[in-house]
Write a protein that binds this DNA or RNA. Structure first.
Lengths: 331, 331
DNA sequence: CTGAAAGCGCTTACAG
DNA sequence: CTGAAAGCGCTTACAG
């Protein structure tokens, strides 16, 4: 391994001077900087991040906590977040936490992360508490929590859901069902509440038997739609907790020969690239997930660098995109 | 931050003893281990990976070099690889390298990675050379390179392609087109060569105008299929370089109102979960991508831990899965 | 403007 | 079986 000492020797300066020169410290003369830089490239030297991290007492690595890396939703979070963090001189580390128990905090310490983005926190999760207790910076992504205050980036479903329901109800649906996300996440809960509120304004309500809940995954939508449709007298429209759930529902419909939107209308939430496919054309509630992911990156970095800054909460607006999976009932 | 020193103080032992006890060093007495462990949990202590890495001279972090994190193919590599590395006590670090130039090696040094999985190396890439020169362990994933010898995990397209073509030709197609991957990757090249060889055995050949090349992405398939179909007298079957390309082709067909497999048959390579969707039902060449990804994790770890072990090359067999996108021409 | 010294949190010979 | 010492590659006061 080639170290700053080797560069120092070649440049004829001391090791700390190499450190200063390469970080462009104004106290180092231009001439020296020149010599050091040349020596560095000659040797193909790059400062070792581990040495640096140990020395300054914190790394430039932020963890992203997710449940399921196969879930395509996360791919569209990871890509822009990774990119933005890199731009800011930080690194993204993936953490999968199915259990949502305490270990996240230990994991963070053990792996020397400087901060964490929680993309998976359930409402009653202990993780934010632990993080807070240990003074580990974190931000909520697409989630919030009752207990612990922290930076957050979330979505306001209001406008999108309002437009979606105006469309669906306007098309003549009165018997509306839903496959919502988990009740113990703020996102699942908030979307569900918004739907119920807006339906109420229209003088409608979800029948208890037409409502299902489950994790935000393909199977929830897939099995859920079958459950709803395979008993007699099903709803004519099914709202899904997110796009991945809706994709599951769409495929279940195809499997059992139920036409969409002919026999049942289906809507999602997220507007993932897949939802725009000609093969899919999912009607859904859209927002800027790319920008949200980048914002989460910015917030965690800001928090790491200025721990005492006031708490920030970025809320992204939604709008409805009508495509081919919603139509008048029985058409 | 809580360190081994704090644990030592609480347990009434020296700091090195804490280090030994927690790594279950046989030279430490059981009684002492007990005391140290208790002190550690009492303080919520976890050994700091940065300190450890600096001390032992290498980290337990391996980089995965990919081109495009949004590409769903990689999600199905990242998830199992991440999981296997974690099981082995290692960490996955994502590296995106669109340019495929030298920086990967610098990146590895700078971020203190102990090894690298190359999932994106073009045939003429300089990256393996640089890695080799610096003595950085790496393994080729789904790729190989002429120049530098290294561990590799690849797919043998032979059997799958043979079965695929038996199906397509058996159904009566004689005018077969293709949208292959990049010519400058071993994977793209190998699949193309296999197709040409097997076609030749059947007394068939690809017409020059029916063959396209491009990156392994959605757009290549999408734009490619339009190109092939929008000129007169198109092929009746189109083989795609991989599933993501085939998905693009399928959607392009849907957009322009071309029926699959009625008007054109389409086949892929990879058998991604999406290809199994009822909405998709792509005929494709399958292999165990999960296992391959885990094997790559095992190989890089083995290489890191035993740099002088003989070079290993794991080759995975393929088979064809006929689904709904292939049928007799004009049916 | 530059160098010598100390220290970040670990691990690993070396003594005892 | 355990501790004191040295060192991994950096950064950062502290002198000069």
């Amino acid at each position: 391994m080639i170290t700053s000492r080797d560069v120092a020797r070649l440049a004829g300066v001391s090791q700390p001077t190499v450190s200063r020169a390469l970080r462009d410290d104004p106290k180092v003369s231009e001439a020296t900087k020149q010599r050091v830089r040349e020596a560095a490239v000659a040797l193909g030297y790059a400062p070792n991040a581990i040495g640096r991290a140990l020395s300054v007492g914190r790394s430039t690595r932020v963890g992203l906590v997710v449940t399921d890396l196969e879930n395509q939703f996360y791919a569209h979070v990871i890509a822009p977040m990774h990119h933005e963090l890199e731009r800011l001189g930080y690194e993204l580390v993936l953490i999968t936490e199915s259990s949502e128990s305490a270990p996240v905090a230990e994991h963070v310490m053990a792996h020397g992360l400087c901060g964490v983005v929680l993309a998976t926190s359930t409402v009653e999760s202990i993780v934010p508490v632990r993080l807070h207790d240990r003074g580990i910076p974190f931000v909520y992504f697409n989630r919030t929590s009752q207990g612990v205050q922290a930076d957050a980036v979330t979505v306001d479903p209001e406008k999108g859901v309002r437009e979606l329901l105006a469309d669906v109800i306007g098309k003549g649906h009165t018997r509306i069902g839903a496959i919502f996300g988990p009740r113990n996440t703020s996102t699942g809960e908030q979307r569900e509440n918004t739907v119920r509120t807006v339906l109420d304004e229209h003088g409608l309500a979800l029948a208890h038997r037409d409502v299902l809940h489950g994790p935000f995954d393909f199977r929830t939508g897939h099995d859920g739609l079958r459950t709803l449709l395979e008993r007699g007298d099903p709803p004519t429209a099914v709202l899904c907790g997110n796009d991945v759930v809706a994709l599951g529902a769409l495929n279940a419909a195809a499997e059992i020969g139920v036409r969409v939107p002919g026999d049942v209308s289906i809507a999602g939430f997220d507007d993932l690239p897949t939802s725009r496919w000609a093969l899919v054309r999912l009607s859904t509630v859209a927002y800027d997930l790319d920008e949200m992911s980048r914002e989460a990156a910015r917030l965690i970095v800001a928090r790491v660098e200025r721990p005492d800054a006031p708490v920030a909460h970025s809320v992204y607006p939604t709008h409805y995109v009508a495509r081919a999976t919603t139509a008048a009932p029985g058409v």
